[in-house]
Simulated scan of single mutants.
Amino acid sequence: MGVKKVWFITGASKGLGLSLVNQLLKAGHSVAATSRSEVELISAVNTNSEKFLPLVVDLSDELSVEHAINATIGQFGEIDVVINNAGYGIGGSIEELTDEETRNSFDINVFGTLNVIRKVSLQLRKQGFGHIINIASIAGIVGATGWSIYAATKAAVIALSEVLAEDVKAFGIKVTVVAPGAFRTNFLTPESLVLAKNPIDAYEDVRSVHARYLKMDGAQAGDPEKAAAAMIALASMPNPPVHLLLGNDALQRATAKNEALTKEYQDWKAITISTDFD
Rank of each mutant, 00 (worst) to 15 (best):
W7M: 10
I9G: 10
A12W: 10
A12H: 09
A32D: 11
T34H: 10
E38P: 03
V39Y: 15
S49C: 04
K51M: 10
K51N: 14
V57C: 06
L59N: 04
S60E: 08
S60K: 14
S60M: 04
L63T: 06
I69V: 10
A71C: 11
T72P: 07
Q75V: 04
F76C: 06
E78T: 07
G87A: 05
Y88G: 01
Y88F: 03
G89Q: 00
G89C: 03
L97Q: 06
D99N: 12
D107K: 06
D107S: 04
R118F: 11
Q123A: 14
R125P: 01
Q127I: 14
G128C: 10
I133K: 03
I135D: 01
A139Q: 08
V142P: 10
G143K: 06
A152K: 00
V157S: 01
V157R: 00
V157I: 05
L160N: 01
S161I: 15
S161Y: 10
L164E: 09
A165W: 08
F171N: 01
P180R: 00
P180M: 05
F187N: 00
N198I: 05
P199H: 12
A202D: 07
E204N: 09
V206Q: 12
R207D: 13
V209P: 00
R212F: 12
K226W: 14
A230L: 11
I232S: 05
L234K: 05
A235F: 13
M237W: 12
V242P: 00
L244W: 09
L246F: 13
D249A: 07
A250H: 03
L251T: 15
R253H: 12
N258G: 11
T272F: 15
F277N: 04
D278V: 11
